[in-house]
Amino acid sequence: MTEDSFSIRADSLAKRFYRTGIFRGISFRLERGEALALTGPNGSGKSTLLEIIAGLQRQSAGSLEMAWGGRVLGRSEIFGFLGFMSPRMNLYGELNALEIIHFTSACRRGPEQRALDLLDELDLTRHGDKPVARYSSGMRQRLKFLLAVFADPPLLLLDEPGSNLDRRGKDLVYGMIRRLMRDRIVIIAANEEEEMNLCGRRLALA
């Protein structure tokens, strides 16, 4: 295990909301360079599982362990190691992209210049000073992707990264994901075959 290696181990994860079971018996292990697609019909708990991995929700049963360089991380430490995007996550409509990047960069200690380069790569530079409320859904999706990846986290949790994107947007984002997954763990909650095919492994939630 190298100094900066990141790993996840999930054993028999289950989630219930009150008496309704969402999923159970979910187990997997992932190391750096591996990608996992979470598949299943709507309501099967793909997004919920992603939020549990992100430390945003607690599992009802089972254990989830993340380690960095062999050291197991506490729940409050996880945030510094992950990039996350989800359709449920909205950005501040009153702020423009540059302000959101500046804010996120200060909070996540990510390099602002890298974010500005990605802004250009994702074809958003000319919209940088426009309030996010005036963005199209596809532009917002590209900005959310940028915010998830710019700090170079060893774990990427992407919930439907291609949703609302046109063909060009999908090519841009999927191309970047392919590049990024070489040296980190990527988990994608996917509804589309194209997103599932990005990952080497699949985990079906019934």
Binding site: A54, L56, F79, M89, N90, Y92, F103, T104, C107, R108
Partner: peptide, 8 residues
């Protein structure tokens, strides 16, 4: 936006 703030 709370999800964004919680992750950030």
């Amino acid at each position: 936006t709370s999800l964004f703030l919680r992750i950030t």
